[in-house]
Design a protein around this nucleic acid. Structure first.
Lengths: 325, 325
DNA sequence: ATGAAAGCGCTAACAG
DNA sequence: CTGTTAGCGCTTTCAT
């Protein structure tokens, strides 16, 4: 059966194609009774509007591009899911692209897809803000999890939760802290480091700063030796993945967590919940991040002014204990 | 600046629009010299072909729909990444949709997107084959990780690797085995169960069959008690996520893995590599699965006959030890 | 509230 | 090898 068009429906009902079109895109402009009949026969004929045709006529594709640096980093899947859901709610599809962690690739990918989407959601971009802006050009975009002057952003602030975590460890008796810094180009890494550094200063406790490391498991594992060397009993890993790496690395060296040291992760990805024992970490509101990003992009597309949004991470305590005697 | 079209280029070069069009879509049909000039001014004018227009004219969208039951299940991200890469190589984008594990949603989503894609990649569908086929209708589709009579499929067979794992445990001295069955509707679960069951029969060892369970962490955790009860020292979890759950559950009961029991996972998702100690599991060739699926779909779209492909999982030994004395 | 008609930007015969 | 001519299916003035 040939795919139905507005014309087949129009013909069947002896109305004009415009009426059928309006029944779908501007229902209020068509007499309720007629509208009903149109919708009914549309259903019968299995009609679905042709997106390409609509796109050609309106200049809208109904697609949001989503650019992530690494789908396999457990931080992203929940975000992707939330975005996909929220997008569906405004009748948009999600075109997913993975930049494989390369800033250069980001530029290429952005220019490659910006022609086929209505707007772009760029998660944790590696690119410097200036280059990013240049690549984005005039495509409506929202930047997720990164500050970017002059661009719409949706970020998560973990400062309060990290300070709370630090206090928690301090209360348990820890006095020697270490901070494993994330990638030097990462905005989030900078923020997190700053939060912990300033807490340590205020609290007057010693803080060994290690890294920068890449935010991957093996880097955490390799870093274990430096942690032991630092003498810290309480460790802030850049994220959960690194925390898992540290735990593995410490185990390689014969230590057990949290018996010998306490590790704090960040993001509360699946990993953190499925480890045994569980990982104390800062839970990122990924659902909300996704939802807000889509809302922002949608607003942008409707020419509405969109405020930058800042969400808060929250502390989730799981395995932490006091330092060994 | 208004977006350039083939006409702006044609005008600037005093050639016809068709020539410009051909320079892009059928370069071989245009005199090299002219082609060069077209491409050059296209670049100058920042021209990018309008996908919607092309789509309207050709009936092709350049999009592959990818339907997964749960993006946040760590099995899928590596698959998604591989698919996205492979699709990019044939100049197709990936429209990602998550069915949230619901078979009913699958039907709805399929009909929702089948109009806007050239073909569909359906991963681990929950829907019965008949319903699936009905929902898919005439859209070229390939089914990933599931057998489906009359549909193109790309699957991973773990039989050999699971038998090898079983032998490995047997060699270590284990004599009492348990099998945690996955979802009863899952094709993969059935296959895995069959593989282990028949091995146990041949080897003449006792096998306690537990479940069916949902393939999630908490179900594994809850199942720990039944494992203890079964007396098995060697346990096949349906997948890595369940394995992690079992380990957590056993820990709740005061046991340690692998000291007290050995657990085998399946799939070798990130989780399995980042656990301490590591998880012995069957590694799924996710990259290849993705690549082959895209190749198959691409073939289908070119009217080529595509064979069903079957890949092999491989055993990866990490933490397993013999049974406690 | 509805219809007629003119495109949106591109591709695909068909001629030359 | 290149130009001409029709559309692809939908939206959108402009009339009625």
């Amino acid at each position: 059966m040939k795919q139905a068009t507005i014309y087949s429906i129009a013909q069947a009902l002896e109305v004009s194609a415009s009426t059928v079109s309006r029944a779908f895109s501007r229902p209020d402009l068509v007499k309720p009774e007629v509208r009903e009949r149109v919708l009914a026969t549309a259903r019968e004929l299995g009609y679905a509007p042709n997106r390409a045709a609509r796109g050609l006529a309106t200049g809208r594709t109904g697609l949001y591009g989503l650019l992530v640096p690494d789908v396999t980093n457990p931080f992203f899947p929940p975000l992707i899911r939330a975005i996909q859901q929220a997008a569906a709610r405004v009748d948009a599809g999600v075109l997913l692209v993975d930049s494989e962690g390369s800033g250069a690739a980001e530029t290429a990918l952005v220019s490659r897809i910006k022609a086929q989407v209505d707007g772009l959601l760029v998660a944790s971009p590696r690119l410097a803000t200036a280059k990013l802006k240049e690549a984005l050009g005039a495509v409506p975009s929202v930047i997720i999890n990164r500050a970017a002057q002059g661009l719409a952003t949706v970020v998560c602030d973990n400062t309060a939760a990290l300070r709370e975590a630090a206090t928690h460890l301090h209360d348990l008796g820890h006095r020697r802290f270490a901070l494993m810094r994330g990638p030097s180009a990462s905005w989030a890494a900078g923020r997190r480091a700053h939060a912990i550094r300033s807490w340590a200063q205020e609290a007057g406790v010693s803080l060994a700063e290690l890294g920068h490391y890449e935010a991957v498991f093996v880097d955490g594992r390799r870093a274990a030796a430096q942690i032991v060397e630092s003498g810290a009993t309480a460790v802030f890993a850049f994220d959960d993945l690194m925390a898992a790496g540290v735990i593995a690395g410490l185990s390689d060296l014969g230590e057990t967590v949290p018996r010998d040291r306490s590790i704090i992760g960040c993001d509360d990805v699946l990993l953190a919940r499925t480890m045994t024992p569980g990982l104390t970490t800062v839970t990122a509101p990924l659902e909300e991040l996704g939802r807000q990003s889509v809302l922002a992009l949608h607003g942008l597309l409707e020419q509405r002014p969109v405020p930058n949004v800042q969400l808060q991470g929250t502390l989730t305590v799981r395995g932490t204990t006091g330092p060994p005697p």
